[in-house]
């Protein structure tokens, strides 16, 4: 799980072009989509994360509402990947 989280951090920084963000700065429990939060991701980023899951982990998410729960934090994302990866 921890290994996966570290990998995800790097992938997210690349996918979302988070200039100036270091992997260590992202707290696995932090809300990714909090408008006032450090990252302040939005709905277009959510779509980018859907692409990331498809591309890197072969997981397809069709429903954006479902995406919202999965992308709550790095922890929830990693859990979802572990559950759905074959």
């Amino acid at each position: 799980m921890e290994e996966l989280i570290e990998k995800l951090k790097v992938q997210i920084i690349k996918q979302l072009n988070l200039e100036d963000v270091e992997p260590d700065e992202i707290d696995p429990n932090e809300m990714l989509f909090d408008a006032n939060g450090e990252l302040g991701l939005d709905s277009i980023d959510a779509l980018e994360l859907i692409v990331l899951l498809d591309k890197e982990y072969g997981i397809k998410i069709k429903n954006q509402d479902e995406g919202k729960k999965i992308f709550h934090s790095l922890n929830t994302m990693a859990e979802y990947i572990l559950q759905h990866q074959n």
């Binding site: 996918q15 277009i44 980018e48 498809d54 591309k55």
Partner: peptide
């Protein structure tokens, strides 16, 4: 036509 980035399109 797979794994496209929505940001670039938008």
């Amino acid at each position: 036509e797979a794994y496209l980035t929505p940001t670039a399109f938008v």
